[in-house]
C-alpha cells in the first residue's frame, strides 16, 4: 500500500496501529519475473540451439557426440525432476523449488528433439503415419500429469492437435489452417474441440487435476468455435454449422455462468456476434437479396450498429451478474 494511502486511512481511523505497522514494513524488492524471464529465454535458446546443431552436423562425426549430449542433458533433467518432485497427487502439486519448472520443461523439449532426430535418421518408430508425433505426445502428456506442469500440458495439447493435422497455437490457428482448401480440417477441428472440452469437463467432474481444466477448455473452445465458423463460411450446408454454433454457444454461456468466467463469457459473445453478422450479410447480399445493393448496405450497417449496441448492453449486464455472484 502507498504511504500516502496508509496515512490517509489511519488518519480517518480505518486502520488499527497493528495493521499500520504491518503495512509500513519495508517491502522486499521482488525480482521473480525478471529471473523467470531469463530462465525461460535460456531454455528457449538452449533447446532451439541444440536442435539446430544436430541437424547442421548431421553428416559429420560430431553429430553423434551432440546427440549424446542432448540425451545426457535430457536424462539429467528428468532425473533431477524425478528426485526433487513432490509425491503424486490427483490435486494440484506445487513445484518443490523455483527452477524445477524449467528443468522439467527443458527435459521435455530435449526429449522431443531427441525422438524427432532418431525418427528422421534411423526411422526408429517405423513409417506408419504419425508415430513420430504420437510418441512424443504421449510422453508429454504423461509428464504433464506426472510432474503437474501446465506448460508441458499445453505442449502436449498442441502436439496432439498436430498429430491430428491441425494447428492450434494462438498465432497459427488462423494463419496455418487452410479451411477453405481442405474442408476435412473443419471436421478435424470440431472433433479436436469436442475431445478437449470433454477432457476439461472430465478433469473437473472426477476432480482429477482440476486445475488443468482451463487449459483444455481454452484450446478446445477456440478451435471448436473457429472450425464451426469456418464450416459456416465454406460449406454449402452452412445452416447446420450455424445451429451447431448456436448450441455450443448456449453450452459455453451456461458453463461460464457456472464457473463465473468473464473470459469465456467474452469470447462466446464475440464468436456468436461474428456468426450472426455473417448470417445477416449472407442473407442480405448472396441469397437473392441483391436487387438493391445500396439498400442492402444500409441495412447491413444499421444491423451492425444495432446488434453491437445490443451486445454491449448484454456484456454490461453479464458483468454485473457475474460480479454480483462472486461477492
Amino acid at each position: 500500500m502507498d504511504q500516502r494511502i496508509v496515512d490517509k486511512l489511519s488518519g480517518t481511523g480505518l486502520l488499527t496501529q497493528e495493521s499500520r505497522d504491518k503495512l509500513q514494513q519495508p517491502r522486499l524488492f521482488s525480482i521473480h519475473w525478471e529471473v523467470n524471464t531469463l530462465l525461460y529465454l535460456g531454455v528457449l535458446l538452449l533447446s532451439g540451439g541444440l536442435g539446430i546443431l544436430v541437424y547442421k552436423n548431421i553428416d559429420t562425426i560430431g553429430h553423434q557426440a551432440i546427440l549424446l549430449l542432448i540425451g545426457l542433458t535430457c536424462g539429467l533433467c528428468f532425473m533431477y525432476a524425478y528426485k526433487k518432485k513432490r509425491p503424486f497427487s490427483r490435486h494440484k502439486v506445487l513445484a518443490p523449488n523455483v527452477g524445477w519448472d524449467y528443468v522439467v520443461l527443458l527435459g521435455c523439449l530435449l526429449f522431443i528433439t531427441f525422438v524427432t532426430y532418431l525418427q528422421a535418421q534411423y526411422n526408429v518408430f517405423g513409417t506408419r503415419y504419425g508415430s513420430a508425433t504420437f510418441i512424443p505426445m504421449l510422453v508429454l502428456l504423461f509428464s504433464a500429469y506426472y510432474f503437474d506442469h501446465l506448460g508441458v500440458l499445453s505442449l502436449a495439447i498442441t502436439n496432439f492437435a498436430a498429430w491430428m493435422g491441425i494447428a492450434i497455437t494462438p498465432y497459427e490457428i488462423l494463419t496455418s489452417n487452410h479451411f477453405n482448401t481442405d474442408t476435412r480440417l473443419i471436421f478435424t477441428g470440431i472433433l479436436l474441440g469436442v475431445i478437449l472440452i470433454a477432457a476439461g469437463y472430465l478433469s473437473e467432474y472426477f476432480d482429477f487435476k482440476k486445475h488443468f481444466t482451463f487449459t483444455y477448455d481454452n484450446f478446445g473452445v477456440h478451435i471448436l468455435f473457429i472450425s464451426l465458423l469456418a464450416g459456416m463460411f465454406v460449406m454449402p450446408s452452412y445452416f447446420f454449422f450455424f445451429l451447431g454454433l448456436l448450441a455450443f454457444s448456449a453450452f459455453c454461456y451456461w458453463q461460464s455462468k457456472k464457473r463465473r468466467s468473464f473470459y469465456f463469457m467474452m469470447i462466446t459473445t464475440l464468436y456468436l456476434y461474428i456468426a450472426l453478422g455473417y448470417l445477416v450479410i449472407r442473407m442480405l447480399f448472396f441469397s437473392g437479396g441483391s436487387a438493391d445493393p445500396i439498400g442492402a448496405l444500409y441495412l447491413a450497417l444499421f444491423y451492425f450498429i444495432g446488434s453491437a449496441v445490443a451486445m454491449v448492453l448484454f456484456l454490461i449486464r453479464q458483468n454485473k451478474k457475474l460480479k454480483h455472484d462472486r461477492i
Binding site: L44, I58, T113, L150, L153, S154, L155, T169, P170, T215
Partner: peptide, 26 residues
Amino acid sequence: KAAEAIIIAQTFHKTPQPDDSFKFGG
C-alpha cells in the same frame, strides 16, 4: 501460470526438423 502455459505452447511448438529451413522464431 495459465498465461505462461499459452506462451510456452506458442514459442516451443516447433521442434527443428531436417531439410526444413528452421527459423528461430522465439
